[in-house]
């Protein structure tokens, strides 16, 4: 048949072209990213996560969390993700190098979770997280073992938030993320209309309904997973009760037992404790944290105007301009 060769070559060329464009070049450009560190080689980000994090990732996948929750923050000039306090900078490819698969998500029937771990209260105030973080690890700026890395990361970041934020410029960039009150405002508004407005940066944690653990702490996540409606009456999240075990209290009440209220509370003499899977998924959520500055992405002080003033000083840690062609400099 005449013209068969051009036809075949045309088809081959078309597919080869898109394969090169969509597979080869991207792999070459962002397929082999490494963690970033500062000049001394410390303060490495991102770090490999703990085993519980990896297992929690599977639980997250198995329960279809990705169908309603995204894990990506878009740039401030495109969308209002940052204004919603879902992050203090846009997500970059480097944020995901240790995650397989990556749950970017394409639906927001629930909040974005890219920085849910960054919103956790300071560890001193949270009851022993299921991830078994020990406050003793807080001082350690560098932790060598991967298992410790996520813990350390989780602990280091909130520690900047515990100090009165307004007076600590270094904390300003992270502030937006470490003070989650506005972000969770619909929760506090609904469950406790009397709660003070959450706008004050650096306000002492927690601002929360009585009887509930501090918002976004591990214990709070457990209560939220077990009974979402007990925290936000309008929540449309399914309850993941099968991740928890209701058992008779043998001897002493377990320290891990959930602080449930009203109709969700187990009968007297019983307690609800998280299974290992529940602990893992909470460890995973607590480990989701993209608040660490990256060189290629501009961190913005997404904080309220009052907290914005010291922000320039904080920018030192995250130089704004990025090379053209890098994710930070998209042509609009």
């Amino acid at each position: 048949m005449k013209g068969l060769a051009p036809l075949f070559l045309g088809i081959f060329g078309t597919f080869a072209f898109s394969w090169i464009g969509l597979t080869v070049i991207p792999t070459w450009q962002i397929g082999h990213l490494n963690p970033e560190s500062d000049e001394e080689g410390t303060d490495i980000y991102p770090r490999p996560q703990s085993g519980m994090f990896a297992r929690g990732e599977h639980v997250y996948a198995a329960n279809g969390c990705v169908y309603c929750h995204s894990q990506q923050v878009r740039a401030d000039y495109i969308a209002d993700d940052i204004e919603r306090k879902w992050g203090n900078r846009r997500s970059a490819p480097r944020d995901y190098i240790f995650e397989r698969p990556v749950f970017l998500g394409k639906m927001r029937m629930g909040q974005d979770l890219a920085n849910i771990g960054a919103r956790a209260p300071a560890p001193e105030e949270s009851p022993a997280p299921a991830g078994a973080a020990s406050p003793a690890a807080q001082g350690a700026a560098v932790s060598s073992s991967p298992a410790e890395a996520s813990r350390e990361r989780r602990l280091r970041r909130p520690s900047t938030a515990t100090s009165p934020a307004a007076t600590v410029p270094a904390g300003a960039a992270c502030l937006a993320i470490s003070t989650p009150r506005t972000d969770g405002e619909h929760y506090s508004e609904r469950s406790s209309p009397a709660a003070p407005s959450a706008q004050t940066p650096g306000a002492p944690w927690p601002i929360q309904t009585a009887g509930l653990p501090p918002m976004y702490s591990a214990a709070w996540h457990h209560v939220h997973l077990y009974a979402p409606r007990s925290i936000n009456p309008d929540s449309n999240m399914p309850a993941y009760r099968f991740l928890y075990e209701k058992r008779r209290i043998a001897g002493e009440r377990s320290a891990e037992a959930l602080q449930l209220s009203r109709s969700d509370a187990p009968p007297a003499g019983w307690e609800v404790v998280p299974t290992y899977d529940a602990k893992c998924v909470v460890a995973y959520l607590m480990g989701l944290n993209q608040s660490h500055p990256l060189k290629e992405v501009r961190s913005v002080g997404g904080a309220p105007a009052t907290a914005r003033a010291p922000a320039p000083a904080a920018q030192g840690a995250s130089p704004a301009p990025a090379a053209a062609g890098s994710p930070a400099a998209p042509k609009k």
């Binding site: 990506q72 878009r74 062609g325």
Partner: peptide, 19 residues
């Protein structure tokens, strides 16, 4: 199409939109 403005180099997204 579903990942516009996601964490990717901007050229990838732009090329995809053009396509």
């Amino acid at each position: 199409t579903r990942l516009v403005d996601g964490p990717f180099p901007a050229w990838m997204i732009t090329a995809s939109i053009a396509a």
